[in-house]
Amino acid sequence: MSRTHRVIPGLPLTLGYTLFYLSALVLLPLAALALKAGQMSAPEFFRVITDPVVTASLRLTFFASTLAALINAVFGLIVAWSLVRYDFPLRRLFDAVIDFPFALPTAVAGLTFANLFLKDGWLGGFGPRLVEGVNALAGLTGAGPLLPSGALDWLTFPYTGQTGGIVIVLVFVGLPFVVRTVQPVLLEWDPEYEIAARSLGAKPATIFARVIFPEIAPAWVSGVALAFARAVGEYGSVIFIAANIPGRSQIAPLQIVTRLDDFQYAQASAIGVVLLAISLLILLVINGLESFSRRHERTA
């Protein structure tokens, strides 16, 4: 590399520009945050971030983000696998809509899910709505109501205002991260190993666990980590569906906003610093994991 260093031009220009732009627009603002939090004494800072309401909000944020990341880990893998390996109706449509959460404003996502998971929403009142729909269709064909009303009243998901609602929107915003990291690796995977393993009599489950999974694991982990990091910071969609009760259902970013509204800038910054430190840690772990797996690949 040191040889190309001298031949390829433009390092001072591009690196200088990169560092300037990065410093002016990202590092300087983030330094302002650290500076503001730094105005507090250490015990004061500690008191703010260990306030029971704050710790409760951090716990909720991490609990909901972890749960959402786990759901995405499982279903994201299933989705990526199905899209790459199996043909089924509307496969290309389903592939195209994976990126939808990247493109839909989070506030709209929050509003939509809050509506869907209301007591009488499409999904919140899934059972009763289904009965209604089926009976309406039956009515069109002239037959009487097929299902007795109340037959499916137990099949409801009234998650608006519940922790379940928070998890649902976090699954939504994180899904593409997992699918889009695993998918390219699966696409590049050469099935010859699989055919060979099969001819040696290995079972499909064994092949997946021993041959395929190790190959996609680094990408899968980094996708899940990105989904998790995104969920930790998510605000716009969550506040529309959460109940926002202090100490019970307020996420950490909302704690920041609440402190700001109370003119507590330093406190808000302190919570911001905690979130930022965790994000940075996650990113360093991801990038470390990747360079580790790259080295591993090369030596293998």
């Binding site: 983030l30 990105l226 910071g233 970013p253 911001g272 979130l275 994000s279």
Partner: peptide, 14 residues
């Protein structure tokens, strides 16, 4: 990569 995982609220706050 950092802005990917900074909470949007923090991004406004800074």
């Amino acid at each position: 990569d950092l802005p990917f995982s900074v909470s949007p609220v923090v991004a406004g706050l800074v």
